[in-house]
């Protein structure tokens, strides 16, 4: 279901400004934050919890926490994205702790799965990238999604979208360049 864009707030409004507005009870700001971060939060929760139902609950809890604690955000301590990430991570960790699992047997061999530090790093990368994708216009997001995750070749993407292959390549490069701008600090 498509969301209608909250009115009166320019899309250039920073995350930090939105959090501050939400702290003052501005629902439009809260809705815009949700639009920007629902998918990254859900992705993070899904990665950590491995269960869609529990991940959906974690999304709800995360945004409940954001609404409740927006007043504790201090813009002089940094931008909004890391603060939101911390709130989401805490909500998800709380939910993971509540999980009742039968203790697993100790494996015979060491696991090759990512350790906590690697998982945290991976979670942050996904968070930033998924958030950045929300900033692309629809045509750019569409071509990136098809190129990277549909399994279609670029020629098949061109056929699917009904546009020349050269346009697909140009649009893909433009989208990646835009993502590079948005993800600026990932390149430092």
């Amino acid at each position: 279901m498509a969301l209608s864009l909250p009115r009166m707030l320019p899309v250039s409004t920073t995350d930090g400004e939105l959090i501050q507005r939400a702290a003052g009870g501005d629902r439009s700001a809260f809705e815009l934050l949700y639009q920007r971060y629902a998918r990254p939060v859900f992705g993070l929760a899904l990665r950590r919890l491995g269960d869609r139902g529990r991940a959906e609950d974690a999304v709800q809890e995360t945004f409940a926490s954001i609404w409740r604690s927006a007043g504790t955000y201090k813009p002089d301590r940094g931008p909004g994205a890391p603060w939101l990430y911390a709130v989401a991570r805490n909500a998800i960790v709380d939910r993971a702790r509540n999980r009742t699992e039968i203790p697993a047997d100790i494996p015979d061999e060491p696991s090759h799965d990512a350790g906590p530090a690697e998982q945290a790093e991976q979670g942050w990368v996904s968070w930033r990238v998924h958030r950045a994708l929300e900033e692309l216009n629809e045509r750019e997001r569409e071509v990136v999604s098809l190129a990277y995750w549909s399994g279609l070749s670029q020629s098949e993407v061109a056929e699917f979208l009904g546009i020349p292959l050269g346009t697909v390549k140009t649009r893909t490069r433009a989208a990646l360049a835009r993502l590079a701008e948005i993800l600026g600090d990932e390149f430092e």
Partner: peptide
């Protein structure tokens, strides 16, 4: 662009 490409691959599709 290569760096962005690597980040997209690492991040995987948004759910």
């Amino acid at each position: 662009l290569r760096r962005v490409h690597e980040l997209l691959v690492a991040a995987g599709p948004p759910p």
